[in-house]
Design a protein around this nucleic acid. Sequence first.
DNA 1: CGAACGAGAGAACGGACGTTCTCCCGAGTC
DNA 2: GACTCGGGAGAACGTCCGTTCTCTCGTTCG
Lengths: 191, 191
Amino acid sequence: MEAAAQETRILDAAEELFYGRGLQAVGMAEIRDVSGASLKRLYQLFPSKDHLVEAYLRRRDLRWRASLAAYVEARSPGEERILAVFDWLREWFAEPGFRGCAFVNSFGELGATSDAVAEAARDHVDALKDYLASLVAEAGHSARLARSLLLLVEGAISTAAVCADAGAADDARETARGLLELDFARTGGAG
Amino acid sequence: MEAAAQETRILDAAEELFYGRGLQAVGMAEIRDVSGASLKRLYQLFPSKDHLVEAYLRRRDLRWRASLAAYVEARSPGEERILAVFDWLREWFAEPGFRGCAFVNSFGELGATSDAVAEAARDHVDALKDYLASLVAEAGHSARLARSLLLLVEGAISTAAVCADAGAADDARETARGLLELDFARTGGAG
DNA sequence: CGAACGAGAGAACGGACGTTCTCCCGAGTC
DNA sequence: GACTCGGGAGAACGTCCGTTCTCTCGTTCG
């Protein structure tokens, strides 16, 4: 099999296993089994487990944000798109195997030990913050609102995971609606 | 040394190490070294690492909430106490060694594998939710507000940790102030 | 045809770690 | 003083895991 396809299968296996059970709980042998690649190939494409972990995080960040953006951008511009973020969260939370934010989880597990993991996690949150800021700007709201939304999104993800309660997305959505109203009043309805 | 004092020292060492570096990154030998207890004593008091991890989480939950409550209850009842939660968070975030929510971190690392860890994390979040609900009720606000506050608190903790930015506490506090205002308007200022 | 190459399967190596075992010592008891 | 008991220090054991090595086999190219 060609290398590119194998890399994809390896990353698919890594994502499923790392996200589902944690970074240290999954061994290279299991990734070999699930991906179908040989151990030799695995180490050719990713010279160490650390490299594979980082590649997993980087790809997941890209895909996660792309999925969110695709969902959001199907709505018409403005406040609807901001609220769509929470609709997307709700669908995600209801998926079987949802286990919180891969980046927060990885940061908690290895952030103290691995700079690469800590950076990947921070980059993800920064990128999410920027994306929320772009939606907020599009809707004509204040930049401050984006920071509030980030807290709501991250808070909803964590509590939904720990409490196994997808309703956190609804709470976050309602709260965001309130914040939009409030910010609308503050900025005088310029958006 | 008497057993009770040794148990405390072991739990102190476990908390420092587990919280600072993660559950799986810390071995029993290191907890022995830091606590000063012998391995034999360690296993007498905690029959396995799993038991020690759970004891660490349970004690941390109690202490964490007691510290928050002590800080909050130094303020006069009402909205001030709600905002005090975020002042407390800000101080916590600024402490050296702050590394996010011990329960979210532990859940991410071992929640998929260990029911005890998953339950301890959920119990912690549930207790926090109840505490926030009590503050909200005391201030005469709607129960819905408590759910919003929980998201803000958890979101602030996660983003402050990952982004190494204590400013998340300020964002959360400002957002909470807005929500109080909004909820005040909604409930007609009954509180 | 034969030699070199690349790939897969899995054994092997080295280290880490949870847990148990051994050995030794000091205190208390008769 | 001998005997027992408990406790400390650390070796030992078994397992797991990241990584590398070996062996084999099919393919390609001269």
